[in-house]
Design a protein around this nucleic acid. Structure first.
Lengths: 343, 343
DNA sequence: TAAAAAAATACAAACGTTTGTATTATTATA
DNA sequence: TATAATAATACAAACGTTTGTATTTTTTTA
């Protein structure tokens, strides 16, 4: 039975070479204050002894952990994962790692996660607020402590005290619905998400605006605000919705890729022909719309880029003066409609 | 311009109350060595001053960070994300956070990530080796330093010195192919992944074994080892494969959900009727097979459970004696064939 | 009410680095 | 070759906790 080995530390190297810890530290840093021959000796000894710096000690000493905390509402939504990939991509360039935490669509979890990050583990925080997040105080608290924060997606007005990145949801959905209208569609259904969520409110607004602007009748029956929190429930909810309709839609605008796919599946099962009898548009465009038969027209949301941008804003904050009242940056990314076979 | 505030620390509370730092620390820990009235005073003062413990200092002092490092080959594969979700779910129960890192399918990145974790940032590591990972030395190094490691998915023989969790890929694919054979299929195509990857080798073995055992002719032309590393290339590769066939398959066994979906899409476009003319089976069952029309029969791999199990093994290691030569645990999870419309 | 026992608290080292300042060793200058 | 200038290194404090031991205070006991 071999016991876990004690780590080699600077002191061990120093003792072996009969020099001071400070010199060892500086040598490894390639600080010009130490003689080249000493530096070489130190490097050789460090290698020979299998030295590995202690990141925690470094962090304590430097006050930097080089970790970015990321809080997303859920894992099983490709959009959030794609944003994380973007964050990771950018952050890695600057030698930051990411600690991902899910708020599981719960405000309480979101708060807990924030508090846990506040304990000094991360240098900054990237957060996508849940639909339950109505108040800004927990975020404001963090900012006031001088911890850099950047938000993305789902930004409510109340929450606009921080840097954030999002798309113009109302405009994006307006354009998509306008496209359907111009195609001559008259009975355009709307499948949205949780009503409390800002992004879905905005996408709904865009839908309404387009309908009103072009004087298209809005049928309440053709509107669904899906409030399921996982995939299975979404499936059931959407099936139920279409099964119960008395008006046959000739187009469906949906607020996520998954809603779009579930809609297509349900409509196909009900015998609708897509796109001949009904058009469907999804929102997000995270790869699956392209695979489905027929392939799905989507509002393409630049998720990866959003992640990169969010990381960029955060790292900018790290490098700025530690001014609490810094000028907030608000970035709106462009979306576009990707046309495919479903319309 | 307000400068970033200095954090409140134990010393600040101690000074205000005119007591020692040790007492403050113990009071906050609810250590019975400190008087109740003192404890109360400390708690009130801590609250009033907005005290937040410094996790880094705690970690340095205790030698524990309560962070689990997770290395996956890629983000855009729902299987890995689902495993991460399982890890997160289990780990959170035990107050661990997860630091996710992608090796981007590269051995070099995998090694770098391991080294970065070795710097003491994490208490243990969960790793899914890439297809490029042929040698075990980098992992063995970590284990020898006494850092707990658990592996999952894609475990080569050479790598079996560590705890690991996987499924029996050969058996799972054998059963799936056997199912097709028993349905009377004769020209069964195989769509696998990167040849160097153990999981794909095993799934291929299972296919071959079933074909041989039942004396079915194997057409080399109907076998594809897909070596694309991202979704777009996979799409192109699979389209090209089916476009060039001289033999019409009556069934296709594929090694991932995505291959299965892309296969269905391609076949449908080529005018095949599914399942009348050709059956398709996917591997993974991460939700999309159910949405596609027709819905896809899949080998269901328990990804979430795999994550939970992996986390469990790791946390077990934390709690065991710090014995380097501890008895390795190998867990094989069960798969099952979920029948749907594509067969 | 003084001594003993128990309770409460304080002191100080430790965790492994970094870094400003002090000291020693070396080289250059006159 | 003594002295100034510079290069190289050592010392020690700091980062914010935890925790074993020492000390002080309070309570108990005779």
């Amino acid at each position: 039975m071999t016991l876990r080995k004690r780590r080699v530390k600077l002191e061990d190297i120093a003792r072996k070479l009969n020099i001071s810890i400070a010199t060892v530290s500086r040598a490894l840093d390639k600080n010009p204050r130490v003689k080249l021959s000493t530096r070489d000796k130190v490097f050789k000894m460090a290698k020979a002894m299998g030295y590995m710096p202690n990141q925690i000690a470094k962090s304590l000493s430097s006050g930097k952990t080089n970790i970015i905390g990321v809080i997303i509402p859920r894992y099983d939504e490709p959009f959030f994962i794609e944003v994380c990939r973007g964050i990771d991509h950018y952050a890695r360039e600057y030698d930051y790692k990411i600690l991902i935490s899910s708020s599981r669509n719960s405000f309480e979890f979101e708060r807990e996660n924030l508090i846990s990050f506040e304990k000094g583990l991360v240098d900054g925080i990237i957060l996508s607020p849940t639909h339950e997040t109505e108040t800004f105080v927990h975020i404001k608290n963090i900012i006031n402590k001088g911890i850099p924060v950047v938000l993305f997606d789902n930004i409510r007005e109340e929450v606009q005290g921080a840097d954030h990145v999002s798309i113009e949801d109302d405009k994006a959905s307006f354009s998509a619905v306008e496209f359907l209208i111009k195609k001559g569609k008259k009975r355009i259904a709307f499948i949205g998400g949780i009503k409390e969520k800002k992004v879905f409110q905005d996408r709904y607004k865009g839908y309404l605006k387009a309908m009103q602007e072009y004087n298209i009748t809005i049928y309440e029956e053709l509107i669904l605000h899906c409030d399921s929190l996982d995939r299975e429930c979404e499936d059931a909810e959407i099936q139920k919705f279409f099964n119960g309709l008395s008006i046959k839609p000739d187009a469906v605008f949906t607020c996520t890729d998954n809603y779009g796919l579930l809609t297509m599946k349900t409509l196909l099962k009900l015998g609708y022909k897509i796109p001949e009898e009904v058009s469907v548009i999804g929102f997000g465009d995270l790869g699956l719309g392209e695979v489905f038969v027929p392939s799905m027209t989507c509002v393409a949301q630049p998720s990866f880029e959003m992640g990169q941008k969010v990381a960029e804003l955060l790292i900018d904050q790290f490098n700025e003066a530690t001014d609490v009242n810094h000028r907030k940056k608000v970035i709106k990314l462009d979306t576009k409609l990707v046309l495919r076979d479903s319309t």
